[in-house]
Simulated assay, not measured.
Amino acid sequence: MERARRLPQRLQLRYAVRVGVLRGDITTEHVDAIVNAANSRMRGGGGVDGAIHRAGGPAVLADCVARFPDGLATGDAGWTVAGDLPARWVIHTVGPDRHAGQTDRAQLVSCYRRCLEVADDLGALTVAFPLVGAGVYGWTVEESAGAALEAFAATSTRVEEARFVAFSDAAYDVVAGLLA
Rank of each mutant, 00 (worst) to 15 (best):
E2G: 10
R3D: 09
R3I: 10
R5T: 12
Q12N: 14
Q12M: 13
L13Y: 14
A16E: 10
V17R: 01
R18P: 10
V19W: 01
V19E: 00
L22H: 14
G24L: 02
G24A: 05
I26K: 12
D32I: 00
D32N: 04
A37G: 08
N39C: 06
M42T: 06
G45H: 08
G46L: 05
D49H: 06
G50Y: 09
A51S: 13
A51L: 09
I52N: 05
I52C: 02
I52A: 00
G56N: 04
G56Q: 01
G57L: 00
A62D: 14
V65A: 08
A66W: 06
R67H: 14
F68Q: 09
G71P: 11
G71K: 07
D76P: 15
G78Y: 10
W79I: 02
T80R: 02
T80Y: 04
V81A: 08
I91P: 13
T93F: 03
V94S: 07
D97T: 02
R98S: 10
R98Q: 14
H99S: 09
A100V: 02
D104S: 01
A106K: 13
Q107W: 09
C111R: 06
R113K: 13
R113H: 11
D120C: 06
D121K: 14
D121L: 12
D121Y: 11
G123S: 03
G123V: 03
V127N: 04
F129G: 00
F129L: 01
P130K: 01
P130Q: 00
G133E: 07
A134F: 04
G135P: 06
G135W: 09
V136H: 12
Y137T: 09
Y137S: 07
Y137I: 06
G138E: 09
W139S: 02
E142G: 14
A145D: 04
G146T: 13
G146I: 11
A147H: 13
A148M: 00
A151W: 08
F152C: 01
F152W: 01
F152Y: 02
A154Q: 15
T155S: 10
T155E: 12
S156N: 14
S156P: 15
T157V: 09
V159L: 01
E160D: 12
E160W: 12
E161N: 12
V165T: 12
F167Y: 15
S168L: 04
A171N: 13
Y172D: 09
D173I: 05
A176N: 06
A176E: 05
G177A: 05
L179R: 06
